[in-house]
């Protein structure tokens, strides 16, 4: 019971924090719409996708994933604030245990990402043709992508010591994850080196699953996407747990105890 209470407590706290940071929340919601309107509309006139759909239709699944990816990863990475300001120490000293704390953080981050993704999805009828079934499937895909993105954020936060690195993380981690995922252009047309990177990138499978959900042709079977995302989420969560407390493990001396 104590672990469940701790997970609930962490999720409740993170959601309360998110709703009170209005400018951050609005910025997070505005980002995908700005991309859709500016990049989507602009590229629509010059880019034609092989399947014949408009660029805006092609990029919409990617923008949905972008909303989730940024929302969930940035919330998870915000763990670094807790580390810097002592809150993480309080959490680690609780009887809940590191696993429950990280689970709570990832669920909270996923919830924030999911909400941001759902707002973009709610605008779907205005932007693309979508059936009720596709709408529901897209909502479920957002939930899967939110969990997958949140553990990626935790992995980054596991080693990040200071909030000063935050902007760097967005440029060095978030944008490459998005750009090398097939969200903005098909991975089939990428050079081999980028294509290899895309195949190792969990966001690629999030985008692909979203394409299936919205009735667009995917690069892989939807079951492959789901399998890869389930496996990478579990592996990355495990890796984040190990990296969070390398003391007495494999990575040498650090300060925090499990």
């Amino acid at each position: 019971m104590s672990a469940a209470s701790a997970v609930y407590g962490i999720v409740a706290r993170d959601l309360a924090r998110t709703t009170r940071q209005t400018s951050r929340l609005l910025g997070g919601l505005a980002r995908p719409f700005i991309w859709l309107l500016l990049v989507g509309t602009g590229y629509d006139s010059i880019a034609r996708i092989q399947s014949g759909v408009s660029y805006q239709t092609f990029v919409y699944p990617g923008v949905l994933i972008m909303a989730v990816l940024f929302g969930a990863m940035l919330t998870a990475i915000a763990t670094v604030y807790d580390r810097e300001f002592g809150m993480l120490r309080l959490m680690l000293a609780s009887p809940a245990g590191l696993g429950a704390i990280l689970l709570g953080r990832s669920l909270a981050a996923a919830a924030v990402g999911l909400v941001q993704g759902l707002v973009v999805l709610a605008a779907a009828p205005l932007l693309v043709e979508v059936t009720v079934a596709e709408f529901v499937a897209s909502g479920a895909t957002l939930a899967v992508a939110a969990l997958s993105s949140s553990v990626l954020g935790l992995l980054v936060a596991a080693r990040l010591r200071s909030v000063e690195n935050f902007a760097g993380v967005i440029n060095v981690v978030l944008f490459p994850l998005l750009f090398v995922s097939g969200a903005l252009y098909p991975i089939a047309g990428m050079p081999q080196s980028l294509r290899t990177l895309a195949l190792a990138n969990p966001v690629t499978y999030q985008v692909d699953l979203m394409r299936h959900a919205l009735g667009q042709p995917g690069e892989f079977a939807w079951s492959t996407d789901l399998g890869v995302l389930a496996a990478t989420t579990a592996i990355i969560f495990g890796l984040a747990t190990l990296l969070f407390d390398p003391e007495q493990r494999f990575f040498g001396a650090r300060r925090t105890g499990r």
Binding site: M1, S2, A3, A4, S5, A6, Y8, G9, I10, A12, R13, A16, R17, R20, Q21, L90, M91, S94, P95, A96
Partner: peptide, 18 residues
């Protein structure tokens, strides 16, 4: 960002109280 009560509720839940 949280009220005092919310902060304490958070700590109570971390401690396993529900």
């Amino acid at each position: 960002l949280l009220t005092v009560r919310e902060n304490l509720l958070f700590a109570a839940r971390l401690g396993g109280l529900g």
